[in-house]
């Protein structure tokens, strides 16, 4: 029951589907077939190259349920690439990726089904400009989870209230500030109640005074029990919310540990060098 299922599609077991009535918003619950403590995400020996550019040279990383892991590293160190491989937006050259025990690097896997289980927020929000804020948030619920519009919108409004943007539900994204857009993008990502949330430098395109509202929202998600793997260059924020900091360098994990350890007493000279530059 708890052995990693080498599953072909669909990834969500039938029992789980039946227990997930379309009339109720998806609940935050650990899938019943999981043994407690099984990592949500397991990356084993991930290798990824772009031509001769070997971006990831063997990454081993696990993210436990309710854990927040922050990826740090210089620009071009492969943080985005790592996140994309976890979401199957990039195909790995070697290694294995397990999502709640399912091997999602298996070519027989239902790629869309896997992506529906993972929420992603990008640096440039990438909201859908032709859809209202509410429709952006509910698109996945309606078209992937197949919720009825009324149910999807009820859940969408709850989320928008939570992020303080209920009044803008009918507005279009271009009417919102960058910070508001990014909060909507987060709401869109968490709407289907994903097992894992991937955040890729979600504040680096924002004006400094807008960064706070987005980071506060992430801290709140952590409080609500989300499992998060995030690339960030906000070292202060990583210290505040991350359970673990992972420093990428040269395509490998150079150093990792609790924030207090990695950020305040880095062991590796590369980590020291990197932190000296960003904390300057």
């Amino acid at each position: 029951m708890n052995a990693p299922r080498r599953s072909s599609p669909p990834l969500r077991s039938p029992e789980q589907r039946r227990g997930d009535p379309a009339t109720t918003a998806p609940r935050r619950s650990s899938p019943p077939q999981l043994s407690f403590g099984q990592p949500v995400l397991q990356l084993r020996g991930i290798v990824k190259s772009f031509g001769a550019n070997h971006v990831l040279r063997g990454i081993d990383l696990e993210v436990a349920r309710h854990e927040v892991v922050a990826l740090i590293g210089a620009s071009g160190s492969g943080k985005s690439t790592l996140l994309k491989t976890a979401n199957l937006l990039e195909r790995i050259d070697d290694g294995q990726i397990l999502l709640a025990g399912d091997d999602i690097s298996d070519p027989r896997v239902d790629v869309d089904g896997v992506r529906a289980r993972i929420g992603v927020v990008f640096q440039h929000y990438n909201l859908f400009p032709h859809l209202s804020v509410l429709d952006n948030v509910t698109l996945g619920l309606r078209k992937v989870r197949r919720l009825a519009r009324a149910d999807a919108e009820r859940r969408g409004m709850t989320l928008l209230e939570r992020i303080g943007l209920a009044a803008q539900a009918r507005a279009y994204p271009d009417r919102l500030s960058g910070g508001q857009q990014q909060r909507v993008a987060i709401a869109r990502a968490i709407a289907p109640d994903p097992e894992l949330l991937l955040l890729d430098e979600i504040t680096s395109a924002l004006d400094p005074q807008l960064v706070g509202e987005v980071l506060d929202l992430v801290a709140e998600l952590k409080g609500a029990g989300s499992t998060i793997l995030m690339a960030t260059h906000e070292i202060g924020f990583a210290r505040r919310v991350a359970d673990r900091i992972v420093f990428l360098h040269g395509g490998r994990i150079c150093e990792q540990g609790p924030p207090g350890q990695v950020l305040d007493a880095p062991q590796h000279p590369q980590t020291q060098e990197f932190l000296r530059r960003v904390l300057r």
Partner: peptide, 16 residues
């Protein structure tokens, strides 16, 4: 292309 990326990462199919 980032629009397609965002759509696919929600779990929408190529056609969707």
């Amino acid at each position: 292309p980032s629009q397609r990326l965002a759509a696919r990462s929600l779990g929408l199919s190529h056609y969707g």
